[in-house]
């Protein structure tokens, strides 16, 4: 792993109006890593991702991309440089076809050959998606939508994939395969920054993790250490103290 983080938060504070959401948050994601951000409901996980991507502007602190402060750069600038998000609940463009959804993932790219290659790569990864190219995305099953959401993100040819609760709303049987899929994407060298409530599962595949509590980072450790952490086990892994 290289020394410069791919993405970094330096003392980030974010507000929605007068409400203080993120409080002095420091994060660093290195190329090719798999890290996860844990936290309860409304702790500010989605806000963290939106701030990284520039959809929410921090009130103080610095968002750093490849060593460059990008606070005043728009989302498109960051997407072009390899940050892509799979939004919460997948959120496909429901009335557009599967193919159009995929094409929109590559919206900022103009390398025709590269786009065609990536499409082929996604077809071979998800043969089922290929069968449904002209179908409306909104008519797909939950599992298929997840594949298209991932495919759409991969079409941007990202260096880091921000995933907002990828297992939310998936049937239990699908959660496991979904994590395996994320691992497979990771093995291709793409860094993963995953927001999850499913702490056990997320930590079992991640390298490192943070725990966010009402907008503050309260734990920051390797995944293994976090899995052993008694406090975390108590509050997030749903285990009784007398283990």
């Amino acid at each position: 792993m290289s020394d410069t983080p791919l993405l970094e938060f330096r003392n980030i504070n974010t507000h929605y109006g007068a409400v203080h959401i993120l409080k002095d948050v420091n994060l660093a994601i290195y190329p090719g890593e798999m890290v996860c951000l844990l936290g309860g409901n409304a702790s500010g996980k989605s806000t963290t991702l939106k701030t990284l991507l520039g959809m929410v502007t921090p009130t103080s602190g610095e968002v750093v991309l490849d060593g460059e402060v990008v606070n005043d750069k728009p989302t498109s600038y960051r997407v072009e440089r390899g940050i892509t998000m799979v939004p919460e609940n997948r959120r496909l463009f429901k009335r557009l076809s599967v193919l159009e959804n995929l094409q929109l993932g590559a919206y900022l790219r103009d390398d025709k050959d590269g786009i065609a290659n990536d499409l082929e790569r996604i077809y071979s990864m998800f043969p089922r998606v290929k069968e449904r190219l002209s179908q409306r995305a909104g008519t797909l099953s939950g599992g298929e939508q997840q594949m298209v959401a991932m495919g759409r993100a991969l079409m941007a040819s990202p260096r880091v994939l921000l995933m907002d609760e990828p297992s939310m709303g998936l049937a239990p049987a699908l959660v496991q395969t979904n994590f395996e899929l994320i691992q497979q994407i990771h093995e291709e060298g793409i860094a993963i920054f995953m927001v999850e409530q499913n702490a056990n599962m997320a930590l079992s595949i991640a390298d490192r993790g943070w725990v966010l509590q009402t907008g503050r980072v309260v734990l920051d450790d390797t995944a293994d250490a976090l899995l052993q952490n008694p406090d975390l086990r108590k509050s997030y892994l749903g285990e009784a103290t007398s283990h």
Binding site: F93, L96, Y107, R152
Partner: peptide
């Protein structure tokens, strides 16, 4: 066109369109 696709994406879901890098 690419522009038309961007419009339809905005029509469908403006925030996600923004996340795709559409201005």
């Amino acid at each position: 066109s690419r522009l038309g696709r961007a419009w339809m994406a905005i029509r469908e879901d403006e925030s996600v369109a923004e996340a795709m890098g559409i201005n």
